[in-house]
Simulated assay, not measured.
Amino acid sequence: MTMQDRDRLDGRRALVTGGSKGTGMAVVERLHEMGADVWTTARTMPTGYERPDRFIEADTATTDGVEAVAGKISEEGPLDILVHVVGGSSTPPGGYAAASEDQWMAELNLNLLGAVRLDRVLLPAMVEARSGVVVHVTSIQRQQPLHDATLPYASAKGALRTYSKGLANELAPRGVRVNAVSPGGIQTEGYDDFVDRLADGNDVTREEAKQMIFDSLGGVPLGRFATTEEIADLVGFLVSDRASSIVGAEYVIDGGTVPTT
Rank of each mutant, 00 (worst) to 15 (best):
G11A: 04
R12T: 12
R13T: 11
A14Y: 00
G19P: 02
T23D: 01
M25T: 03
A26N: 08
V28S: 00
H32F: 15
M34P: 08
T40N: 03
T41E: 04
R43M: 15
T44E: 13
M45Q: 12
P52K: 15
D53I: 04
R54N: 00
T62K: 05
E67I: 07
A68V: 09
A68Q: 07
A68I: 11
A70K: 01
E76Q: 14
L79P: 08
D80T: 05
D80K: 01
D80W: 03
V83N: 07
V86W: 07
S89Y: 09
S90D: 15
S90W: 15
S90A: 05
P92F: 09
G94R: 14
Y96F: 12
A97K: 06
A98M: 10
A98F: 08
E101Q: 12
Q103T: 10
Q103A: 06
M105E: 09
E107N: 02
E107R: 04
N111V: 02
N111K: 03
L112T: 02
G114P: 09
G114S: 13
V116M: 15
D119Q: 09
D119A: 07
L123C: 12
A125C: 08
E128N: 04
A129Y: 06
H136E: 10
V137I: 11
T138N: 05
I140M: 13
P145V: 10
P145G: 14
L146K: 02
D148I: 10
A149V: 12
Y153P: 00
Y153H: 10
S155R: 06
S155T: 12
K157S: 01
G158N: 11
G158R: 03
A159D: 03
L160T: 13
T162H: 14
Y163H: 11
A168Q: 10
N169R: 14
E170S: 00
L171K: 00
L171A: 11
A172N: 10
A172S: 15
R174S: 08
G175L: 06
V176I: 06
R177I: 02
N179P: 01
A180Q: 05
I186W: 00
T188E: 04
E189M: 08
Y191M: 14
D192A: 15
V195K: 03
L198Y: 04
A199W: 06
D203I: 05
V204L: 13
V204I: 15
A209R: 07
I213E: 04
P221M: 08
I231Y: 07
A232N: 01
L234W: 04
L234C: 13
S240Q: 03
I246W: 01
V247A: 06
V247W: 00
Y251D: 00
I253N: 06
D254I: 01
G255I: 03
T261F: 14
T261L: 15
